[in-house]
Every structure is written in C-alpha cells, then in structure tokens.
Amino acid sequence: MTLTHNRPIADTAVATPEFEAANERQKRRRGLLLALPAYAYLVLFFAVPLGIVIVYSFATRNRFGGTDLTGWNIDSYTALGDSLVRQVLLRSITLAVITTVLCLVIAYPLAYYMATRRESVRNLMLVFVMIPFWTNFLVRNYAWYVILGTDGPLSRVTETVGIGETRLLFTQSAVVLGLVYGFLPFMILPLYASIERIDGRLLEASRDLYASGFQSFRHVLLPLSMPGVVAGSILVFIPSLGAYVTPEILGGAKTTLLGSYIVTQFLTARNLPFGAALSAVLMVIMLTATIVYFRKGGRTL
C-alpha cells in the first residue's frame, strides 16, 4: 500500500494498484466454489481416514482385541523390524518390481506398434486393451484360478502335449502372472499416449545420422517416451505393492504379501495399531517411489 501513496493518481486511466490487486485476488479465487465439492469429498473420505490410520498406529492394543487410544507409543513401528514382517515387505516389493518390469517389457513394443498404426487401427486396438475392464476384477482373478488349477485347462493342455501337469496355482509365479495380467493396461495406455506424441521424423533424423535401429530406440525413442514409462511404472508398481485380491486368490498361504498381511492384522489378529503402522509404511514406500520417479522423469523431459 505504501507504493500507491508515493505517486499521485492522475484522473486519466493510469494503472491503479488497488484495482490490479483486487483483480489478482479474484483470479486466484476463480473456480474455487466449483472445486469445493471435490475438495470436501477428498478431505472427508481420504484425508480424515488417513489421519485416523496414522493416529491408530501410535495407539495400544488391549487384551480384549480392542484399541486403547491412550498411552501413545511407537511399539507398532518397532515391531516392523521383526524378521517375518521384513520378509513379507521384501517379498511384496520384489514381486511389485518384477511385475512392473514385466509389464514394461511386454507393453512397450505393443504401445509402439499401436502408436505407429493408422488412426482407425489404433482406436480399435485401444478398445481391445480396455475390454478386460468390462469384467469385474474379482471375476477375472477367479478365471485365472480356474485356468491355473490342478485340473484346469492349462494343466490339461500341458499333459496332452506331454510336458506333464503344471502346478502354477498358489505359487509366486501365479501371483506375478495375475498381477501382470491385471495391471498391463495401466502400463500400455500411458506408454501409448507418450509414444504417440513423439514426432516420427525425430526417429528418421536419428537413422539419417547413422544411428542403428537399437541406437535410435536407446537415444531418441526411449528418452522421449520417459514420461510414459514413469507414469506407467507408477500406475503398475503402486497397486502391485498393495495388491490384495490377486495374491489372496492365486497366491495361497505360503506367499503372504503386504496387502493380505495388513488385512490379517486388522481382521484376524485384531491388532489395529500394527495394521495401521504397516499401512503407513506402505504409503511411505509408495510416496518415496513416486517422488523419486517423478524427479527422474522430470529431468529428462
């Protein structure tokens, strides 16, 4: 305000800082009212429950399976150092990484193929990629349960061919298979979107400048499609890490993953503080992975 009083305001239409400031305030507030329902929804059903989870992680479990919201402590977090927990954590992360890498390797060539087709073919292929979403996720997992089962179609085929029966169900391989199957479209779509945006002449230019097909991929296509790689990897890694349905149906008892373990803590063991602490850890891992990936992607953009 001191600025405005330093010079006299002429009666012509000179710039008046008060009006400009008012205008700026209005600009900042524009659309706030319209966004309010979404804000309210997120706060009520996302931020508040998240707060409750974090509060519970510092609470104490009482003898009767209930939770006392007194005597705050970090016992639940110390319990994370337990070897069983570490094993579950490590196994979950390993499977999520394997799933992400497999999705990337399978999806990239397909996304490139799709992005380089003519428009009608492209759109048709996009529809094909999204068709699985028309069926419930749970149903699709049970379909795999049937296919992979001891007496299922896959086993019969391998028996007929003479390789002998397959015992895939209730193994980690079955879990990875199910996860890759379930999350592949989340990798394909962002990859497709980012490859499709790349100017094909850049690849031609690289070939003209003596790059082999692989060098052209390595030095031009891959770096330029990095936003898609990052987005797709996050979209696959995060749900894989917290996956519950697929490991539960296809994994069996020996391969407990983080998602199932957390559910067990809440529902079976009735150890709410420990379940909450595990959830918090899971979120921290996801958040870290996201930030690291975005930073890395951001630099190559």
Partner: peptide, 11 residues
Amino acid sequence: TVFQNYALFPH
C-alpha cells in the same frame, strides 16, 4: 538430411 521443420532432438 536437413529436415523440414528441422527435427532437432528436443531432449
């Protein structure tokens, strides 16, 4: 080749 619109590598 010098391409139309140059096709410089943006990254």
